[in-house]
């Protein structure tokens, strides 16, 4: 019963995440950027613009210039999340490659860092009056959800251990459409339920910034308007009908 419920839940969550995010990315890609609007000074080549975006994605370079606290907490959270995700990859691959073995302890420290950084972001959100003003219920809920995921994961590790070999068998089974029993430990089920919820929310929430950062015209356009004529399809149409 538990196994079937969670199996279906994860199939559905994965489908919603992939389809929802895929549709959004397609929409961004298809929507034209009619004018040249990079925030200058901007690189003058495509490669340079790609580097600029890479800097934003990997180092949060604009945020660094902007506010050191938000940068520190936000960047720490994202790096920690990445390490935690890498640590979890071992549940989905067999045999486990050597890199993933090395990552394991870092993934564990990262879990603490992640929860701490999230807590720090939340404290700022409540404590700084400007941030409090712009915060809505969904912003609190998103932080609560992420902290709950981190905390429940840590609880499984330290307080309420589960049979992780069985958990791995369950996920490998899911991927091969050959369901294996999932241990019915409450903490594990809570953890998985919250993760599935996050996956479902992803394409409908502000988490879309993960896709948006790649499509931001002020960052990804090279600065070449005098050398190259940019014309959106609808603008070209306008030009034709106007003459």
């Amino acid at each position: 019963m538990v196994t079937a419920t969670f199996a279906i839940l994860f199939y559905a969550a994965t489908a919603i995440l992939l389809a929802g995010l895929g549709a959004r990315i397609m929409l961004y890609a298809r929507t034209p950027a009619p004018l040249s609007i990079p925030t200058t000074p901007a690189p003058t080549s495509r490669g340079g613009a790609a580097l600029r975006v890479a800097g934003e994605v990997a180092l949060f370079s604009s945020l660094f210039r902007s506010n050191k606290w938000i940068w520190l907490l936000g960047w720490a959270f994202h790096v920690a999340l990445l390490l935690v995700l890498l640590r979890h990859l071992r549940y989905f691959v067999e045999p486990v490659p050597q890199v993933l073995v090395w990552v394991q302890p870092f993934g564990l420290y990262a879990a603490f860092a992640m929860v701490a950084a999230l807590a720090g972001l939340w404290i700022r959100r409540i404590g700084v009056s400007r941030l409090r003003y712009i915060t809505g219920p969904s912003d609190h809920l998103m932080l609560a959800l992420l902290i709950a995921i981190g905390a429940s994961g840590l609880a499984i590790k330290y307080l309420a251990p589960t049979d992780i070999v069985a958990v791995k068998a369950f996920f490998l089974g899911l991927m091969r459409f050959d369901w294996q029993p999932l241990p019915a430990d409450p903490m594990l089920l809570i953890h998985l339920l919250l993760v599935a919820l996050l996956m479902v929310l992803f394409p409908f929430s502000k988490l879309l910034h993960a896709a948006g950062v790649f499509f931001s015209p002020t960052r990804n356009q090279p600065d070449t308007p005098r050398e190259r004529r940019r014309l959106a399809p609808w603008a070209a149409e306008l030009e034709r009908t106007n003459r």
Binding site: R24, L27, Y28, T31, P32, A33, P34, I37, S62, L63, S66, N67, I70, G74, R124, R125, V128, R130, L131, I134, T135, G136, D139, K206, L208, H209, G212, V213, F215, S216, P217, T218, A232, W234
Partner: peptide, 22 residues
Amino acid sequence: LERSRSLRVYLDSCVRCGACTD
């Protein structure tokens, strides 16, 4: 929204981090 990528992406992407508030 159909004409301009910036509008669509910017309306979706803000995380209310507050970096711009000051």
